[in-house]
Design a binder for these strands. Sequence first.
DNA 1: AGTTAATCGAGACGGTACGTCTGGTCTTAAG
DNA 2: CTTAAGACCAGACGTACCGTCTCGATTAACT
Lengths: 199, 199, 199, 199
Amino acid sequence: MSISKSTARRRGRPQGDEVKIAILKAANELLEEQGLAGFTIDAVATRSGAARSSIYRWWPNRGALAIAGFLAETAQKIGYPVTASAIADMKSQMMRVAEVYGQKVGRIISALVAQGQSDPETLRALLDGYVLPRRDEAKKVLARGVASGELRDDLDFDVVVDALYGPIWYRILVPHAPLTPEWAGRLADHVFGGLRPLR
Amino acid sequence: MSISKSTARRRGRPQGDEVKIAILKAANELLEEQGLAGFTIDAVATRSGAARSSIYRWWPNRGALAIAGFLAETAQKIGYPVTASAIADMKSQMMRVAEVYGQKVGRIISALVAQGQSDPETLRALLDGYVLPRRDEAKKVLARGVASGELRDDLDFDVVVDALYGPIWYRILVPHAPLTPEWAGRLADHVFGGLRPLR
Amino acid sequence: MSISKSTARRRGRPQGDEVKIAILKAANELLEEQGLAGFTIDAVATRSGAARSSIYRWWPNRGALAIAGFLAETAQKIGYPVTASAIADMKSQMMRVAEVYGQKVGRIISALVAQGQSDPETLRALLDGYVLPRRDEAKKVLARGVASGELRDDLDFDVVVDALYGPIWYRILVPHAPLTPEWAGRLADHVFGGLRPLR
Amino acid sequence: MSISKSTARRRGRPQGDEVKIAILKAANELLEEQGLAGFTIDAVATRSGAARSSIYRWWPNRGALAIAGFLAETAQKIGYPVTASAIADMKSQMMRVAEVYGQKVGRIISALVAQGQSDPETLRALLDGYVLPRRDEAKKVLARGVASGELRDDLDFDVVVDALYGPIWYRILVPHAPLTPEWAGRLADHVFGGLRPLR
DNA sequence: AGTTAATCGAGACGGTACGTCTGGTCTTAAG
DNA sequence: CTTAAGACCAGACGTACCGTCTCGATTAACT
């Protein structure tokens, strides 16, 4: 493969990575600082030092650029711990997510979702590039819990993931109260433990 | 003062309600049909037959108009059933909400949330005018459940409401899968019952 | 008529003449100073203090604006003298035209013709708004000359106008040598007198 | 050195004339077909199969390329007939010019002149490469006419050339009426014969 | 019944971002 | 060293909204 790859080097001037990286970096910073407002192609161009046309060469529109910036810079930061207990892993991961989403990242995500409401391609990209992969990871943890007997074996994983992570996104997007790790911990306890009296 | 206010019908031509109503109706229809894209002051004016200036006389900006349209036309449609079982009431209400939000209303809400991301006043209005009141209603049902012994007495109501309704909003805003009453029913079962084996 | 005119006052905010005038003035100045290069919608907007959108409200594109500026500001400056001799009138008018076209006006006209080469509507507007009316004026003077016996009665007026004014435009557009009143005078003498020996 | 230079075929790949020729041909065709609009470096590159950079290696800018294309492909097509009568030669040549300029060539010339208005080098090149040489040829014919006594001996040749050819260029550039050989013939008759009654 | 002050439709106006299209420069791989 | 390919900076184009503003026309309450 490496052979075919080295051979198939295209003809013209190769794409200078610095430009692309600078653009994505600038895009991300703008989203962090100002959300969707202020996230202007012009602003990205100015801050990155690139030309507007260079941006449009690589991304078809604002939404695509925003997604790309997010995925390149911010997305891959939260992994799952792996201990003996799947439930404990899940809970601690939710708390970390809540912590991170409570900061800048939450602003970016909410901006992306907002953009997605009026731009189907952005939504699609967000789902395929971020949401669905992370849901799959979560399902694996759940499967581990079922296998170990920590979790019931009749769970609907999609419903469970919605129940555990849905509220977190909800609090990002509809911030009726702050998003804190403590809250996320209590959320995990409630959902895992159920709401009925113990007996 | 309140007297003088109620009495002292101001001079000049009073505001004809038809205009306001036509505007709100048009606003709502546009949101239903096209979401935030296509929801243009101009489009609302054209469809309603009103003048742009008439819109701006009564609402300061796009977001405020959108909220107003939503609250006036769509918001008050889903009440809580009251039966012997608080859990059953909650579950059936969630299923109804899921059904309604799965249609046009969901599109409107997602548009409003999206608008809210770049417009704090819209967000505030959505919270105060819709989200928080409905959360309070839900908490009342929960309190009934605690009183009747159906629910544990150590619940954090805010967390519970997040756990039950958060996922519904999440599925509106991040539509990775369709929002159906069946799904909402399963969600209720999982959350109320907990995820651990029965033992 | 004045009645119908006063009655037919349209509904909305009337068009403020200052804006339109400022735009046309700025357009003309830019054409004078820099020709077609530098004649940018943005530059016109900046110099006039108007918004780009205000320009596009009244003129569909660059060419239309250029023509409008020319016709409004510069076009109507050269009238025909009327004396006993049509030939003398013609000659002196040609000399005046040469003098004026030798300055800024010539630069504007050449810019307009250039623009017209790639924009049929601009060309059409230039013809209808400037070229043809002025040709008609010239033909009237010629007719006077024929009536008085100064000129032959078998002249093809269109050909004559081309012969007298064509060279002037030619020297504007293809400036192989400067355009001066003296030259225009000699041109008139040659054409009126013919090129053959006197006998 | 000069020896080695003439002998020593420079290193590297020799310049294939086909490329240059293909470029000029494509440039000319585009000018013929669409005038200045559509005459894009990119369009020339695409049609000729050459790369944009190859064009810019040989010509500094759009105008230079246009001129080059014109001179290489279209310019040298109209010679002067030589008979006993200089006036007849002149007239028949004018008619031929009018015929040719009335077709594609006219469109090219007008495009070049237009380009020249905003690009002094193009103008210079057009003058030096085409206009002035042709004027010189015309003057020689005039001189023949003076020598033979057909023409007055006090003529200002520059004025006469302007009078005879100026109108033709004028009709190309300001096409208020079609450019036909008949018209050119009448033009010649009027100018040579003068406009005054015969007496 | 006339005055008065507000509503309402219409639309001009200054702004700002969008996405597209050129121009001209520069950088690479292949020949 | 030439050629094809194409990345890159720069900047104008015309479009679409926004929110403000200025009009004339209308209309109900107050005088």
